[in-house]
Amino acid sequence: MKLPVWFHRFGSPPWVYGFAGACVPWLLICGVLAIAIGAYWGLAIAPTDAVQGEVYRIIYIHPQTAYIGMMAYTLMGIAAGIGFIWRIKLAHAVAVGAAPIGATFTFGALITGAIWGRPTWGTYWEWGDPRIMFELLLLFLFLGYLALRAAFDDRDKADRVSAILAVVGVVNVPIIHFSVDWWNSLHQTATVMQLDDPAMDPEMLVPFLIMVGGFTLLFYGLLFRRLQAGIVERESGARWLRELVEGAAS
């Protein structure tokens, strides 16, 4: 099978560096704008929840941070797997870029969840709640991936060993998603991801989805920026990079 030319470009570090650099400002600007609009809408315009009152407004940030963490891990696992199997450095750079973003957003999901839990469930933390535990495991998988990489001086070895952890850990992502169906949990079952009949009022669903979109755009902007940084690190000494920085340094 003959692959189209554009596909091969994704294996070229200078092309990916330039492509990512061109996308980053748009992704970040649109992401920040959407989050600002969504936050204002969610905090000031959306109606008060009949059961929870005003504290429900954490719904416009908590599921979004959790979703970004899970998406970041899935992407990290797939990219690390591709890098491991086909020995593609750029794929490993994608995985490395996704890890710190995913770790901080997963941490944010745990913290905002704890803050939300106190007034609604009467507790900040519940060790017996499966979704909280598997979300905590997700944070440890991100931190473990980064710590494992830091333990190797040789980058190729770090890529290969950390990729195994990244790929194995992907199984945790569907467990987090389905944990509310499989076990008794303080968390409610799927609210938005039942597309035929979302159990959320449109007045709340619209800002909710704007926030999902904003967080997603911001995530890819951050990932592309980190991918650029990773490419510069890995392409040390390459002619295109020398030419790039010579222009900037002089």
Binding site: L28, E54, I58, I61, T104, I115, P119, L222, R225
Partner: peptide
């Protein structure tokens, strides 16, 4: 509760924006 949750999320977003650019 609401403002602490939003504040922490904002701090995480700002750290990510700063650190990605600083690393490059």
């Amino acid at each position: 509760y609401v403002w602490t949750a939003y504040g922490i999320t904002l701090a995480i977003l700002l750290w990510n924006l700063w650190s990605a650019g600083a690393m490059l």
